[in-house]
Design a protein around this nucleic acid. Structure first.
Lengths: 246, 246
DNA sequence: CCCTATTTGTTCGTATGTATC
DNA sequence: TGATACATACGAACAAATAGG
């Protein structure tokens, strides 16, 4: 702890202490003293070095969290927030291209796959008869090495008998589609909800269980309008922002 | 408890008890025995009448919650989930029209309003100079009487000096815009995130604090492309689904 | 698996200064 | 002047999540 910390706070100036602390910390982040991803000193340490109560520090931190500058994780600490990923939801929604356009490198991992019989919901969405065989692939998608979304894709087996093989080779749905004769496809619609993580979602997305996930359900269709894929994606809400451009 | 409850479960048939319970409950919901919004019997009561352990009931319930059929609220009970509102995010995103199109009646309430000086972020988004006066109105918006979103709208005072008066009269942003000379406007973009409720958001939206809110930031512009309003809306994630049609 | 230390989250209570009626 | 409400600031204790042995 630098001895120079003291003297940054002035009491009785009409400016609340917590606001001075906030300005002080924001200046340090701006100056690069704390970089994105860095952990701040603990609330206790900050309170000590600034000679104020922990509540006063907490007020400043919570203000900064609300502004999106910090990420506070119970039991771990307080971190300078990294830049969020603006994930575009449009006609041409594609994970890799989406990330490339904002200067990030996309990573894919095929977690598991299985064959199922289409339940009424899936059958309707993919225009299949109930009970028709569907392939379900689970993928973990990352940006610059950090997981940002965990997705399940439902595909009609009749249309894509060898999709898993292609996926294992290319690690890309777009390429796997191409190898199965779908040169191009479009997003038909997307539905967005939010909920708390379930099962191992938090673990896979490497986020605390106390943070929500953004869940999207979507249908992709080929150029004739025939639905080819039904996807359910969970996005780490701390790292992703969904963008709709009109 | 109806005596007819027993006999619905068959042990040793290869079908897990919890799955039988799930099918049993889903059938009862389908049949209308339990209607949307109804409270189910407590986990203890269900376990008693079905002669199984409470954990077995919980497994069935948690499966149904994951499917979106139930809403489990700690300390209150388990409820049959009401139909969610499909809120369309498109060029012509308007609250009342949006709800009317899915057969619901929209309600608006102007909570408060205040005048501020535009901070750098707001100034940039509304194409104002920093420090320019802006009007901030807070509204609570409901569907069929139930609050579904709580929004703050930032408007340049220079463009809409009397917006508050018009809002108080019409209780509709669209109409208030019209009264101030904006015959038509369009949604330029929307950004969607999710987080836990803060302050009195949970209270206003009448949802438990343990459920996330969907937060949208958006810009509306007039027909010339000039931004007229910057909005931050919090949606009750249990009741609203955001829909993007391409 | 338990146990412990660390760190944030929550809820009490107390006191003070300021603005308003 | 008093009464009241509100935001600020401090203190103590405990709860809950995390990490490591």
């Amino acid at each position: 702890m630098a001895a120079g910390e003291q003297g940054t706070l002035n009491r009785g100036t009409g400016v609340a202490l917590w606001r001075q602390i906030q300005q002080h910390l924001e200046a340090q982040i701006d100056s690069g003293r704390f970089k994105p991803g860095d952990r701040l000193p603990t609330e206790f340490e900050l309170a000590e070095t600034l000679s104020v109560n922990r509540h006063t520090v907490r007020r400043a931190l919570s203000e900064m969290e609300e502004k999106g500058l910090l990420r506070v994780e119970q039991g771990r600490g307080t971190f300078v927030h990294e830049a969020v990923i603006a994930y575009n939801l449009g006609k041409r929604t594609r994970f890799s291209a989406n990330l490339a356009s904002i200067g990030r490198t996309a990573g894919h991992k095929l977690l598991t796959w299985r064959q199922e019989e289409a339940d009424p919901n899936v059958a309707k969405l993919l225009c299949l008869r109930k009970g028709a065989p569907v392939i379900v692939v689970e993928t973990l998608n990352s940006a610059d090495g950090r997981p940002v979304s965990y997705a399940e894709h439902y595909l009609a087996k009749a249309l894509f008998p060898d999709i898993v093989t292609h996926l294992q080779e290319s690690q890309s749905l777009t390429k796997a589609f191409a190898a199965q004769g779908i040169a191009d496809y479009e997003r038909k619609w997307t539905r967005v909800t939010a909920r708390m993580p379930q099962g191992n979602e938090a673990e896979l997305l490497m986020q605390p269980r106390s943070r929500p996930v953004l869940v999207t359900e979507s249908i992709d269709a080929d150029t004739t309008g025939m639905p080819i894929s039904y996807g359910i994606s969970r996005f780490a809400s701390d790292w992703v922002q969904l963008v709709i451009e009109n």
